[in-house]
Every structure is written in structure tokens, then in C-alpha cells.
Design a protein around this nucleic acid. Sequence first.
DNA 1: CCTACCGATCGGTAGG
DNA 2: CCTACCGATCGGTAGG
Lengths: 224, 224
Amino acid sequence: MTDSSSPTLPAPPAAVPTKRPRGRPRKTLDERDDGNRRQALIMAAAALFRRKGFAATSTRDIAQSVGMHSGSPFYHFKSKDDLLYAVMEAGMHSAIARQDQALAAVQDLAAVHQARAQLRALIHSHFETLLGPGNDFVPVMLYEHRSLGARQRTALAKLQAQYEAAWSPVLGVLHREGALGAPVKLSRLLMLGALNWSVQWFDGKKEASVQDLTDACMALFLKE
Amino acid sequence: MTDSSSPTLPAPPAAVPTKRPRGRPRKTLDERDDGNRRQALIMAAAALFRRKGFAATSTRDIAQSVGMHSGSPFYHFKSKDDLLYAVMEAGMHSAIARQDQALAAVQDLAAVHQARAQLRALIHSHFETLLGPGNDFVPVMLYEHRSLGARQRTALAKLQAQYEAAWSPVLGVLHREGALGAPVKLSRLLMLGALNWSVQWFDGKKEASVQDLTDACMALFLKE
DNA sequence: CCTACCGATCGGTAGG
DNA sequence: CCTACCGATCGGTAGG
């Protein structure tokens, strides 16, 4: 059983592209794991895009950080923009998957507490997506949206709409119960904004945990 | 009485730098309004930085949009980074001034409603700073923070601390009154995040106004 | 503030 | 995926 689908980066080939043996290490066909190299590029790009921004990151930076030479990323991606989109798409897929799991885990509660428990699950899951260790994909998506082309922006918008669609019914119930003070749509925009902004100030090594943040949100946003 | 301190851009010199009369229009010394050209550069830079991002905007873009030639911005600013900092500093000064005015206008209310009125004033003023027509400075500051050097980041942090300092006592009163459900510091971070994020989705031509947003925030964040 | 220019870097490609 | 390379662009400067 292979773990070729594992999203963890297999320790990079000790990036020293200056002096390396000229004859590149012969690989037989079954050793060529293209998927892993592509994955490695996506993860390295995510980390660099987050730290320095898309425009300030060169494709050479990315190549070097996975031990490739400058032209090689273009064997895996047609353009730098395509690589950016791949990062964002991967981020949304993982965010949606995490959100679905979080909602499923809370499905069987007594109806009285369902909506509250669902909102807590949504908030906690969102914070994990934003602040969890190694989760650079969605932060890059949030802060480099501008750099996307029109076509790719449309494709992403569908994934984002799918993600946010899970919030509206939950907020609707809470609003009707009187636990949510503002209209559903504005509430969703403001709440997601409060969460998304945490990327700017959250420090994993500081006192507050993701649990603390979730508690604070529930206390701030809901009545009684 | 001159209006040399007016922050409005005097209609740009119809930027057509390709064919313009070679002998540049002689200006006598008292016509040379260096301050205005510098201001024009700051405003053009703010608009471009906001639309395309700092790294994706060239100093040539900025020069062209005020009718200068490529090297000329460096007569007014030592580097592109200095221009970015000038944009952000101007943004914080104007934000602080607007906030002070907003608080002063609400100073004389009956004590029972003071804290609520103050919070409303802070929120409304913040939305104006972010979303008001031509207000690109603070949005640039919020989203290009990363591009600043360490020294300038420290200088800006002082202005930001000054700005946010006005929020804490107001939130403290509301928390003690039971109107604010979460701890003061986390409340401030989450609330400002909700507001700051509006830059991403607010559309001035759409239905919701800054007043609507302010109302929604008050309804969302405060109990009873 | 313009003119003329420089060194550096960048995204991307052909050909293997 | 590497090698070798190209055209374009960029921040910045000297000298007036």
C-alpha cells in the first residue's frame, strides 16, 4: 500500500543546485513520481506566496525550494498563474472537505442545540483551515485573489460559493431564534471577515488557541 | 488664501507623455509647487497599489499616471518603498483625524448611552476610512503590510496602536455592562477584522450603505 | 523634473 | 526535468 496521496512534503532533496553531479541520478520509470513533484511545487509555492506575496515570489524561488532548476516548474505548470490557481484550488478542496467532516460530526445532536453546535463546528473548522500548521493554501487564496485571471477567478468563485452555502441555513435558524442580531447575509460577511482577518494577527505560540478563538466568536456573535 | 494643503488631486496634466512639447513649460519659481507633485504621486500610488498590488505596480506606472517620466518619482522619493510608506502614513493620519472628530461629535451624550454611541461612531468612522470615495490609503496599508521594511513597519505600528487605543476603553465599558460577550482584546481584534474585511466585498453601487453596515455591526456585536 | 542609461531579474521556451 | 538562452521589464542613478 503506497501513500502517494499523502499531502506531506517528502523531505526536499537538500536543495544545493549549484554543485550537483552532472549526470542526473538515473530513475527507472516506476521511480518517477510526477505527482509528488507537482505536489511539492504546490506546497512550496503556497509557503512562498504566503510569506512574500505572489508578485514578489519568482518561479526561481519556488524551483530552488524544491531542488529544481529554474526552468523546470514550467514542465509541471504552464505558467506562474496556473501554479497560483493550483494552490488556491487545493486550498478550497481541503477547506470544503474539512467543513463537511466537521458538520457530519455534529449531525446527531438534539434539535434544540443543533444550530449552535453547527455554527461552532463551522467556525472551528474555518479557523483550522486558516491557522492550522502548514495550512498556507487558503490564506494565499484570501490575500492573492487579485492576482488571478478572470477565468480562474470564476472557477474559484464556484468553490467559494459552495463553501459559504453551508453557513446560510445555520445562520437563518439562529436569526429566527433571536440569537443572531443582524440579517443573515451581512452576518455571514461580517463573521467570515472577523475570522479571515485572524490570519493577520494570530500567533500560534501565544496564549490564545483556536478553541479560545472559537469560544470568543460564539460569545461575541450570539445573544443569550 | 491658498489651498495648497487640499488633499484633492488637481486634475492631472492630461497624461500624454509620449508626444509633448520638448522644451518643458517654463515655470517661474513661485509656480513650482513641489508639495502638490509629491501629493499627486502619493495619491496615484495609492490608487495603483490598491488595484494591482505593490509589487505588481511599477514606478513607471505611477510616474505615467501623474504625467511624469520614468525617473522623476525618484526626485520626490528615495525609493519605491519610501513611497509606499508615505501612502500608509498619510492613511493613518487621516484615519486618526477622522476618528477623533467622530468621537468629539458624540462626547456630550447622556452617560447611559455614551459607550454605545461611541462604539457606533468608531465603527462608522472606520467604515468611512475604508470605503469612502477615494480612500485608498488605509486599504493599501491593510493589504500591503508585508511589503514594508522592518524600520517602517515599526513606525506604522505606533500609529496603529494609537488608532486602536480609542477602542479599548469603549469596549471595556460595554463588556462590564454585559453588552459585549467576549473579552475586550479578542473582541477588538475580531470586530476590526470584520470591518477590515469589508474592503473585499463592499460595493458602493449596491444596496447596502455604510450606515447599513454600521447598523448591522451594532446588531451583531452587542446584546440586548 | 527630463534624458539616457545600467545591472539585475523575471517569466517563459527550445531542444534534448 | 536540465541547459542555455531570450526579450521584456524593473528600480534606480548621473548629470544636467
